[in-house]
Computed example of a mutant assay.
Amino acid sequence: MEIRKLSKLEQLHLNINNLNGSIPESLLNCKNLVKLIFRVNYLQGNISKLDFSRLVHLQILDLGNNFFMGNLPKSLFACKSLTAVRVSSNSLIGPISPKITVLTSLTFLSLSNNSFSNLSEAIKIFAGCKSLVTLILSKIFYNETIPGEKNILGPEGFKKLQVLACGECSLQGEIPPATQPASGISLEEVESSQLQNLLVLDLSENRFSGTIPPEFSYLTNLEMLDLSWNLKTGQIRTSLKSLNFLSKFNVSYNDLEGPIPTGGQFDTFTESSYVGNDGLCGRVLQLSCSTNQPVRGEQYQHLADINLKKLQLEGFIAGFVIVFLSVLAVQAYNHQMSLFYRKKQIMDLSVIS
């Protein structure tokens, strides 16, 4: 049966099937398609040349983990019903088209592990996708510099965003103060600003410098913050204790220093959250911040170990002394008995004689 004759086809799930070749153009004539999933195959070809414009009902497109080339097809922006697009782990290149903002229903977008470029413009474009909930940008925009301008997201950017992943991009520069409230703005206005619904923020394995932005303290719904393997300096801000839902926190392998905050969620994080920062100190690292010596609990253990060794040594000495005295006592007793028998023998000899 020819694919083009499947006029009523709404869903096509062919993920993880070892398929190769290219997507047949006749498939794009199935105008009632709602879900098209080809994830994890060996498909290839230039997807820029594919015409998706007839798939007006398409809601989910998943082409991830294949060998496609080109850029995001311009015809894709005609699919106004799209809610989720995944093209991660292909060989796509080029800048992000601003036309993607016409996809007003788009909530999920994964572009990771490709060769897209022009991060500065891409951030502004993505901020215009007002329905985005999940944005995965890991392993793209390699070695680019993150723009340092304030409020790059604009007043309305990313209000619904819950997951933002930009790990393993080798991005450099300082994290922009995108969430910094202007002077005179009330707390209610701060809470309604961009990124306030963010739950997951992954900025790991980049080259971000500077201190941890104080604006992170305003992300009160944050559950995961990963800044590991960067070049962050300064101290871990105590204001981060206000993040009451934070369940995963990782700043390992930076150049941070000073005391690790205590209280709140910080009492739940382990040593693995902080390793690779030689200047950090605190109970979780068993290192006192005042003397760079073991903290009290470790000192008590250290003293206990010393006392145990002392007891063991004293026990050994006491045992040795007892044994030694016992030997002397036995020798003295034997000597006395020897003298007694010798004296007795002499007396016996005198009687006989």
Rank of each mutant, 00 (worst) to 15 (best):
227 L>I: 07
265 Q>V: 10
211 T>W: 07
305 D>E: 10
129 C>T: 00
148 G>W: 03
289 C>I: 06
209 S>N: 13
18 N>K: 07
166 C>P: 03
55 L>T: 06
352 I>A: 12
95 P>W: 01
339 L>Y: 06
80 K>Y: 02
185 I>C: 07
316 F>H: 11
157 G>A: 06
279 G>P: 04
311 L>M: 09
349 L>D: 09
265 Q>F: 02
187 L>E: 15
148 G>M: 05
55 L>K: 04
189 E>H: 12
286 Q>D: 15
289 C>L: 06
205 E>Y: 14
44 Q>W: 05
229 W>K: 04
346 I>K: 13
339 L>G: 14
346 I>R: 15
330 V>E: 15
210 G>E: 14
210 G>T: 14
19 L>C: 03
126 F>N: 01
142 Y>A: 15
62 D>R: 04
66 N>D: 13
250 N>L: 09
241 K>E: 04
6 L>C: 13
242 S>I: 02
180 Q>Y: 03
227 L>N: 05
168 E>G: 05
182 A>P: 06
96 I>S: 00
24 P>T: 09
23 I>F: 11
206 N>C: 13
75 S>A: 11
131 S>G: 06
235 Q>P: 08
293 Q>I: 06
233 T>A: 11
98 P>T: 05
22 S>I: 08
193 S>E: 13
190 V>I: 12
25 E>I: 14
246 L>F: 10
45 G>L: 08
191 E>P: 15
302 H>N: 10
157 G>E: 08
122 A>D: 06
268 T>E: 13
154 G>M: 09
207 R>I: 10
19 L>W: 05
116 F>D: 00
126 F>D: 01
333 Y>C: 02
256 L>W: 01
204 S>H: 07
106 L>A: 04
133 V>F: 04
235 Q>L: 11
301 Q>G: 07
14 L>A: 00
134 T>L: 04
124 K>M: 15
251 V>L: 07
314 E>C: 15
45 G>E: 08
103 L>K: 01
11 Q>N: 02
17 N>H: 13
28 L>T: 07
42 Y>S: 12
35 K>D: 04
247 S>T: 03
80 K>W: 01
254 N>G: 00
246 L>R: 03
239 S>T: 08
134 T>G: 04
261 P>H: 09
182 A>C: 12
28 L>V: 14
34 V>W: 11
200 V>F: 10
319 G>W: 06
82 L>W: 00
78 A>K: 05
215 E>I: 08
35 K>W: 07
182 A>S: 10
13 H>Q: 07
287 L>C: 11
9 L>W: 08
303 L>M: 14
203 L>P: 00
309 K>S: 14
67 F>T: 01
166 C>M: 11
234 G>Y: 08
126 F>R: 01
120 S>F: 01
344 K>T: 11
80 K>P: 04
341 Y>Q: 08
323 V>F: 11
294 P>M: 04
207 R>S: 03
205 E>N: 12
204 S>M: 02
211 T>N: 05
187 L>W: 15
266 F>R: 09
177 P>Q: 15
45 G>H: 04
169 C>D: 10
262 T>N: 10
143 N>I: 10
78 A>L: 00
134 T>P: 09
111 L>V: 02
59 Q>C: 02
248 K>R: 12
342 R>S: 12
55 L>P: 01
277 N>A: 01
207 R>E: 06
